[in-house]
Design a protein around this nucleic acid. Structure first.
Lengths: 92, 92
DNA sequence: AGTATATGCAACCAATTAGTTGCATGTCAA
DNA sequence: TTGACATGCAACTAATTGGTTGCATATACT
């Protein structure tokens, strides 16, 4: 796979998106609603579902989040692949 | 040192800043003018010295660039330290 | 069928940001 | 000390972006 470094770094540049990755990394396969609930409850974020949905789009464009449809739900999964070799050239 | 992840990721989210890191990584201790020249000549960038100066500020805030005064010059150096453990928690 | 739930999409807004231009400061060298 | 060179700083602009609100679509359940 040929990852788009720019999309990856841009996706990682927002703290809310990094928080989303933290959540998905710890507890894989969340729906948008579950994720929203966790971000608001657990992390005290005040943000709408739609805003989080846009963050997910950015993360998907970067390949950092993948999703599959499960009936009425869409479960989100963290994909660490784009992160390997991301810093190559600067650190070993 | 306690690095500011947000500053680091934000600094890395711009392709011109990443290019600056590439240049400084390959050829350490450049002045602002030398760096500007290389970015324009070697990489075909069309950007002003002042714009690059602002990028340097962002990189310095993130700890990724350090500088020391040498008379009338200010030489820039790449500092990879903030990059270690940057992706910790997501990849090993 | 009809309602509730989960998500998708688009227009809009305020704040941030990458860039510019113009001018000021500081240091070396003749 | 005067001129040339390297950098610093501030105001302004256009584009991007994180967020919102409102409405549309899709699937499940009774």
């Amino acid at each position: 796979m040929n990852w788009d470094k720019d999309a990856i770094f841009k996706a990682l540049s927002d703290s809310n998106r990094r928080l989303i990755l933290d959540e998905l990394s710890e507890r894989n396969e969340l729906t948008l609603y579950e994720l929203t609930a966790r971000l608001i409850m657990k992390h005290g974020l005040s943000i709408s579902r739609q805003a989080i949905s846009k963050h997910i789009s950015a993360l998907e464009d970067a390949g950092l989040v993948q999703s599959k449809r499960k009936g009425k739900y869409r479960v989100l999964m963290f994909n660490k692949e784009p992160l390997t070799d991301l810093l190559k050239g600067w650190v070993e």
